[in-house]
């Protein structure tokens, strides 16, 4: 069972690595921002699996923290980049 959990973690990590390509390619800032959402969700999944695998239930608190703050970046981006006339692509 432990080997299986490690495999799942590795798979999810490789998923993150794949998603990094989108940060690189862009083309807009919004596209790059999306990958932070991917990292947030995948990171949470990894943390949940690790919590079960290591038996360290406090790791769930890390996942909670991730989760409540993931949306903050998006809200900040949308609110801060809005007012400028060319802000979105400049």
């Amino acid at each position: 069972m432990n080997g299986f959990f490690i495999g799942v973690c590795l798979f999810l990590l490789l998923n993150i690595c794949l998603g990094l390509l989108r940060v690189w390619r862009g083309p807009t800032v919004a596209d790059r921002l999306l990958t932070t959402q991917l990292f947030g969700t995948t990171g949470m999944a990894i943390l949940i699996v690790l919590a079960g695998y290591l038996g360290e239930l406090t790791l769930l608190n890390v996942a909670i923290t991730f989760n409540v703050l993931a949306v903050l970046l998006v809200i900040c981006f949308v609110q801060v980049w809005k007012p400028g006339k060319k802000g979105g692509k400049a």
């Binding site: 990590l13 690790l50 608190n61 890390v62």
Partner: peptide, 25 residues
Amino acid sequence: LPQCVFLFFAFGLTLALAWARLGAV
């Protein structure tokens, strides 16, 4: 710079996972 910043976020996330692995919750 946007690439730089978002890759830095990913770096931070990787460190957070590393700390979870090292038992530093």
